[in-house]
Design a protein around this nucleic acid. Sequence first.
DNA 1: TTAAATGCAAACGCTTTGCAATTGA
DNA 2: TCAATTGCAAAGCGTTTGCATTTAA
Lengths: 146, 146
Amino acid sequence: MSCHEILQEKGHRLTLQRMLVIEALHNAVRHISAEEIYEELHRRHPYANISTVYRTLELLKELELVTETDFGEGRVRYHVAEKGHHHHLVCHSCGRVADLEETALHPLKEGLLDEYGFVADLRHLAISGRCNECRSGHETEPKLRY
Amino acid sequence: MSCHEILQEKGHRLTLQRMLVIEALHNAVRHISAEEIYEELHRRHPYANISTVYRTLELLKELELVTETDFGEGRVRYHVAEKGHHHHLVCHSCGRVADLEETALHPLKEGLLDEYGFVADLRHLAISGRCNECRSGHETEPKLRY
DNA sequence: TTAAATGCAAACGCTTTGCAATTGA
DNA sequence: TCAATTGCAAAGCGTTTGCATTTAA
């Protein structure tokens, strides 16, 4: 079921603004910020306001249609949930962000459940550190971020 | 070697304000925010300013005398590094924060190094989820936070 | 003596809010 | 029709900054 259908099914209105926010999220190659979504939205609907973007993202989060990840930039980035869960290795030297399959944290998740009875919400975790390239002294500009 | 000595050794001045910030950090039972440090400081030195707190915390971070943890509150909390590293299990239902020994993440750290060559900086990680008490329906007000 | 540190006030960047006007169902 | 949603402008919040004054060494 598409985001549009889920919104309507739960009794929310399908406005142009919401459709454009959803489209921006789907078109994003990587993780996109509220400001970037607003730029897309504003391009096609110049009267749109950034508070609508925040309100829509809030709604999509509640409906678990998008996930939020904090890459330590002082703002948060969004990703369509259905595109799948994965984690991130954020290099604090070059800023490069690599993906880490969700399964890589399964042992940790199980350990926390067994030993603490804690159900960890590990959907979009950003782990900071130093990447292989920077460690081996081949520091280069990363091609892809977020 | 104490924080005071390390500051001086590295050529930084030992001001009253800095000493009071360090004291507040040491006296804190758990993790303390910049605002809370400022309250302590202001009580004893009414002319002190919060920008001094931020500048001092910045310095202490650089010298690795304090660590910073984001509990997802929209602000960050500080902890004296010498008190030891540990991680946190933050319950999004009741807000309770449990400590997790540093060693619990050693397997993950080693896995990331072996498979990705990534040196993860896992000093004060906050993992969100749902705690045992909330899961089993015995939701109570937590006694201790942060 | 003098560079480092502080206090102050203003600004910053991201996000939220109150409210009147608009709009989807 | 009318509650949900929006645009707008203002404020909120934690944090940072420029600059004149003060101070530790």
